[in-house]
Design a protein around this nucleic acid. Structure first.
Lengths: 218, 218
DNA sequence: TTATAATCTAATCAC
DNA sequence: GTGATTAGATTATT
């Protein structure tokens, strides 16, 4: 239980690291509501309700944006924020972006299995990559479920999975790429007609109605 | 001029197609302002200003979210929206997600230049892919500029370019991959020490201060 | 050590 | 021509 919570926390922090401009993540609704309440003694009750409804729509929209970006709005602390912001504004990190001549990939030459073509060309393995994202058990389960149905989801399907799981669509694409690379080419064609139990996302997305931008700019 | 506007429009529409939940894109600031103005005859002037300031912060934050997602807030019409929404809610499109057996790639066998390994395996070219994005001349120019500096930008650099150009970060990654594949391996190592003129994004991002989520949930 | 997310190249598709 | 996708290899993190 603690392990799972820890994984979720790690995912949140990793995503915060990805999008520091959005940190800290969403808090409870109390803040925005109290803003309208504390300043509401000049507002009529009807307009207070309208304002509250408006704020709820705005918050819901921002929540959806964060959902697409893969940022959780669950109960978590805003720890470790600001690190990447300092990275952003610190010109020292531009050293990383200097015209670095692409390093020759160092192959361990004592390979037993001969690779087709070592492809000893420009590949800078030193390019700092994105922090590793940890997915929760539920997310893995749903992804696996969808993978059993269709290992090649198109963009619409990927975004639907994204909205349900809260994982950004590009991460879902990467997950399916790796999944295909590891569990599809391993002669799984024999085990193909074993489990037709998984369903291709029955209209779960209907329970997640999209909020239109019009609600904000009306 | 018209061509360029057309390209921007195509990009916007393509991005709208990517994220229909966010359509229509941002309009001018007048709508939100007028909302607070028309309902403001019960609000004191000071609080009206506070509300306006608050709404401006919210709009700025949403603009930044849209910027990360690559959605423009420029002057454009909301045409062609709703198509993907119907796709989302239409169960007919789930046919696309059925467990489709991966098609064998059909190679045109009358090739003159023998490929190394045709790699005749599973590749379902029929999966409807993302609409082709058209980048404007300014975006191409900045991307090319950054490519001359560093053909291997890390995640932070890619997101910085994303925030400046308005292109989503995954698209920037794809652009650099294609660029490397097409213009880097063509024995450009000879022309390597020709143009050190391009600069690796001098602190341009300092002109784009990030808006913290705290401004909304305070 | 193993599992896996992220990134890379090369080839190819598709508009 | 170029954006998007795939397979496969590789690196790095847990």
């Amino acid at each position: 239980m603690d392990l799972e919570l820890d994984q979720v926390l790690c995912t949140v922090l990793s995503l915060e690291e990805d999008y520091p401009a959005l940190s800290p993540p969403l808090r409870s609704q109390d803040h925005l509501s109290s803003y309208f309440f504390t300043s509401g003694h000049f507002i009529s009750q009807k307009e207070t309700q309208e304002a509250l409804h408006h704020s709820a729509i705005i918050q819901q929209t921002v929540c959806e944006l964060c959902s697409i970006l893969g940022i959780y709005e669950g109960p978590q602390t805003g720890k470790r924020m600001g690190q990447n912001i300092t990275n952003m504004t610190n010109p020292e990190t531009n050293k990383e972006d200097k015209p670095r001549k692409p390093l020759k990939r160092k192959y361990s030459d004592d390979r037993q299995n001969g690779y087709k073509k070592p492809r000893v060309e420009t590949m800078p393995s030193g390019a700092r990559s994105r922090k590793k994202t940890i997915y929760s058990n539920e997310q893995i389960k749903l992804l696996q479920n969808q993978f059993d149905c269709n290992p090649y989801p198109d963009f619409v399907s990927r975004r639907r999975i994204s909205q349900i799981t809260g994982i950004p669509e590009p991460r879902i694409q990467v997950w399916f790429q790796n999944r295909r690379a590891r569990y599809l080419s391993k002669s799984n064609q024999i085990l193909e007609r074993k489990k037709p139990t998984a369903q291709p996302l029955p209209n779960v997305h209907k329970k997640l109605p999209s909020i239109s931008m019009e609600d904000i700019w009306m």
